[in-house]
């Protein structure tokens, strides 16, 4: 008995150290529905960071930009470039969507890697990147679906649905299937990448204390940025695809 409890205690200590908690949620109740509190908290922080920094940097634009304004101009140029390459000349109205998609995912991912969320203890579950939760990624993916349907319908009207029998009606099932696979692949790609990245870092930290996880952490930062870019680029590509004229 003693040996057993002792071993359990040491194991307990180990798990406290690693703190792997997957699928644990800090539930809130709103009007009879459950929500994941930790996701909402971190998403608020991310939104606050984005709005605050943007408001601060673009408050009083100068002809010759410096510091923050320079950075934000660079980011805007980047977003416009991504939108323009994927959507084409009519990219203008879609810049806010693509840009917010990119910035929100990017800041979320990096907040999971850089902000010391673990210092704040929750009664249940733990704070992590909002994109660590399937709800966030599915929400973003569904918004992308809605966006490209809206883009196609507003551009071409009902003839947009003609794309389902292009180039031949035989492909109709596959074309319909695409509308389901697009959000599915978008959401699961992001979710899986971020979750896996966080898990790898946590497990490595629990196994090897200090130096070894650092390259993995940098790799995680890299992956996070790439995932944000992929999500935004694919969203723009879907929108551009539904807007372009089919022959």
């Amino acid at each position: 008995m003693n040996v057993l409890s002792c071993s359990i205690n040491t194991l307990n200590g180990l798990y406290d150290l690693s703190g792997v908690e997957v699928g644990q949620h800090f539930y809130w109740k709103i009007g009879g529905f459950q929500v994941h509190g930790q996701v909402l908290i971190t998403s608020w922080v991310v939104i606050a960071i984005l709005l605050g920094s943007a408001a601060l940097a673009v408050r009083n634009p100068q002809t010759i930009p410096t510091g923050g304004q320079n950075f934000f101009e660079y980011v805007l140029e980047f977003i416009r470039d991504v939108s323009k390459t994927q959507i084409g000349e009519e990219y203008g109205p879609w810049v806010p969507f693509i840009g917010t998609m990119f910035l929100f995912i990017f800041v979320s991912n990096w907040s999971g890697a850089l902000l010391p969320w673990k210092l704040i203890q929750l009664p249940h579950g733990e704070l992590a990147a909002p994109t660590n939760d399937i709800n966030t990624t599915v929400a973003l993916a569904l918004l992308t679906s809605v966006a490209y349907f809206y883009a196609g319908l507003s551009k071409k009207g009902l003839s947009y649905f003609g794309k389902y029998i292009q180039p031949t009606p035989i492909l109709l099932p596959i074309n319909i299937l695409e509308d389901f696979t697009k959000p599915l692949s978008l959401s699961f790609r992001l979710f899986g990448n971020i979750l896996a990245d966080e898990l790898v870092v946590v497990v490595l930290v629990s196994l090897v204390p200090s130096v070894v996880p650092i390259p993995v952490m940098f790799l995680g930062l890299f992956t996070s940025g790439i995932q944000a870019l992929i999500f935004a680029t694919l969203a723009a590509a879907y929108i551009g695809e539904s807007m372009e004229g089919h022959h």
Partner: peptide, 18 residues
């Protein structure tokens, strides 16, 4: 892991607000 609830529409609304 795959626990869908009201978080999803809330995040969507937050995204639109953002």
């Amino acid at each position: 892991l795959f626990d869908f609830d009201l978080t999803l529409p809330i995040i969507a609304a937050e995204f639109l607000f953002l």
